[in-house]
Design a protein around this nucleic acid. Structure first.
Lengths: 347, 347
DNA sequence: CATTGTCTGAGGTACGTGCCTCATGACCTA
DNA sequence: TAGGTCATGAGGCACGTACCTCAGACAATG
């Protein structure tokens, strides 16, 4: 009780004293400013490690004149999940402001690589400390990310990663695990066996391909009684999804289940509700949105696997806060959990 | 772009000017100190609302000399979930410290109402800003909570709520929904029907009773092909659970599933692994701990419903930070989601 | 030796709030 | 009317970091 009261917070002053340098030098090292010899910087680094110094986030954000600015680039164009991501950002604007952080959103036409790259290139480091992007793997984007990083803007990827670039952090679920989970559930739903149709948006999308991979592997390993049909490609389009699903449900009378690992669920729900097999065909889809919520409630959908947009945005904001206080800081990355929703635990 | 640069942060100075009072008075109102006429306090409140003032959390925590102290009272005595809660607190100590918060844990012998009440009564407001407790509903505790609140200590309940008291906040899952979810999954696992045995810790525990209620209602409503056996009471004891499970699995050859809505899963897993029916009997339990994780991996357990200790502790810490800056502040309470784990999405 | 450049120290102000002291005026009571 | 309490104002220091200026030390270069 006494010892904890006596143990003062370790400050930059302590670091300076321990390293035998001045406050200014510690400051230069901490904030990556020039004018410090490598040997001196190392002395400071050792003192920091020895004392277990950790920068006071509150004081740090206080001291900088301007708020921390974070820009989210989120795809636009009818994908409900992306909309819910944008809404999650909005929901956090208020509390972030109380934490001296300014969040803003830019919607980019889906798959418009050029627009996203231009957006990144146009970012002024004075007006943006951190950019969060949702993108597929394109050389144009890779170049833009590296350029932004060089200009001092921390870039983080959301939902789908961009490995091998200078992006500081990735936030998203483990899509292979998501696919495995879908298979694990469907396998248990069909103890007598049956046929499962798989619909994907596009197998060129990294996350979709990963989900399919996980789904396939578990089905083959643990549930040989279940037969896989597909994958069919919907290009995440509700109309395409609807006609695909209609055909599957109507013509494949022996169809036991559908796993849609892409978007376009509004069409899927319409197709199912128009058929007479609601409740007979087991359905697993991704992302809790208005149409999938409706599907859960009507019984057309059995399970929704969810990326938890609010959790992802919270994580992004926390990470941005840490990243802005000096790049290269290692920090514990809490993986986003896959949410599993049935009608009975809808939030 | 220009407008946002021009819009300065609203500070206490602005509030003072708008209300036509001095800084000291605004401060007295904000921090609930005496010496302000009701009429004056109201003027200040109006100015705060008009300007949309929100206290700067960073500056606030900076200004108070001592760190924010939060004490967690967590039951002790062999319950793995409670252990994992305590571990979750430990994991957060470091990052909380960087945020000027000091977390500590006190283990209280499970169900020892007197010890918990004494612990609460012994809290000195100078050494504790917020207490977080896990408890059942007992008059002794209710009195201790109210007393602590009067002394200026914010109290929050974790896992199981204490409605009708002066507790500031509850953090936990919706246990009725958890029970419904278990039924919803088991019903789909047993399309041909079967018998489900239910094991509870004690039906006097609010959370257990709620889970049973949810489980029963969905089974009756949606899955009449499934028959319910029990509930049996294990008192959350692994040995009792083991002998119960052994008897159920061995004697009830027609048993299709087990739902353990209480603790003591180490015994359940042992019983199942000792039997020859692993993989035949569907098993759903609560709380992701060492034994249940092992059960998932071995195939003895199909699904674990989880309270997400890390999420709960994170939420508690965030709430404590806000609460300490003045009681009665309304803040958005993010419900804790029920985690659903299969072998394939183990984190 | 003078000049130039690089590295470092000393010290200051600022951020927004918490918390303290002291002074002042208003109002009440004896 | 004197002495008391209460509400409020004025002002200042502190928290730990960011960021600025200025001066001095030193080495290398001409």
């Amino acid at each position: 009780m006494n010892e904890e009261a006596a143990r003062r917070r370790v400050t930059v002053h302590d670091v300076a004293r321990a390293a035998g340098v001045s406050l200014a030098t510690v400051d230069r090292v901490l904030n990556g400013r020039p004018g410090v010899r490598a040997a001196t910087a190392e002395k400071v680094g050792e003192a920091i490690a020895a004392l277990g110094f950790s920068r006071d986030l509150n004081a740090s954000l206080m001291a900088r004149a301007r708020d921390l600015k974070v820009v989210f680039f989120i795809p636009d164009g009818g994908n409900e999940f992306m909309d819910s991501l944008a809404e999650a950002v909005e929901r956090r604007v208020g509390s972030a402001l109380a934490d001296r952080m300014h969040l803003s959103t830019r919607r980019i036409r889906a798959l418009d690589t050029g627009a996203l790259a231009a957006g990144l290139d146009g970012l002024d480091p004075a007006h943006c400390d951190c950019a969060v992007i949702v993108t597929s793997e394109e050389p144009e984007i890779v170049a833009a990310v590296d350029s932004a990083t060089r200009r001092g803007i921390a870039v983080m990827t959301l939902v789908s990663d961009l490995p091998g670039t200078s992006r500081q952090h990735f936030i998203g679920i483990d899509n292979v695990a998501a696919g495995r989970t879908a298979a694990s559930l469907l396998g248990r739903f069909l103890p007598q066996g049956g046929t499962v149709a798989v619909i994907a948006g596009s197998l060129h999308l990294r996350d979709h391909a990963e989900r399919l991979e996980g789904f396939r592997s578990v089905l083959e390993r643990d549930f040989s009684q279940v037969t896989l049909l597909g994958p069919y490609e919907s290009h995440d389009n509700p109309e395409t999804t609807q006609s695909l699903a209609t055909e599957l449900v109507d013509k494949q009378t022996q169809l036991s289940a559908i796993y849609n690992l892409g978007a376009g669920n509004a069409g899927l729900v319409s197709a199912l509700e128009a058929s007479d097999r609601v409740g007979e065909v087991r359905v697993i889809v991704h992302e809790l949105t208005a149409p999938t919520r409706r599907g859960l409630l009507s019984g057309a959908i059995d399970v929704v696997l969810d990326q938890n947009p609010d959790g992802e945005i919270r994580e992004a904001v926390t990470a941005a806060r840490v990243l802005a206080l000096g790049p290269g800081r290692a920090f514990a990355t809490h993986p986003i959990e896959i949410g599993i929703f049935l009608r009975d635990n809808l939030r």
